[in-house]
């Protein structure tokens, strides 16, 4: 049905490649509701269910909660983002 993944060029980075590369790294997970979770990615699965450590919950840019460990159900996830070293916040 789909013709994807036939060509693999040097610049291609598939979702699977991305997920492999971010384990154990600091990430931002944004939910469809607009809530952000910042923490260290422990692991994830094919549903985009996510386990994170040292998680901070931000609502409208404000820190609302902290969790030692957190499981996020994948259906709520809008994106998973890497975090740049700089803590510059454009908010």
């Amino acid at each position: 049905m789909s013709g994807t993944g036939e060509k693999v060029t040097g610049t291609t980075k598939t979702p699977t490649d991305f997920l492999k590369s971010i384990r154990g790294k600091p990430v931002v997970v944004k939910l469809n509701s607009g809530v952000d979770y910042r923490g260290i990615l422990t692991c994830l699965d094919g549903y985009m269910n996510i386990a994170m450590e040292q998680t901070e919950e931000y609502v409208n840019g404000q820190l609302k909660n902290k969790y030692g460990d957190a499981f996020i159900r994948g259906n709520n996830v809008l994106y998973i983002s890497t975090v740049k070293r700089t803590l510059a916040d454009g908010a």
């Binding site: 969790y67 030692g68 499981f71 159900r73």
Partner: peptide, 13 residues
């Protein structure tokens, strides 16, 4: 019911 769940946080390991 699972579809209403956003986040689960266990006690600190």
């Amino acid at each position: 019911r699972g579809d209403g769940v956003i986040l689960v946080s266990p006690p600190l390991r």
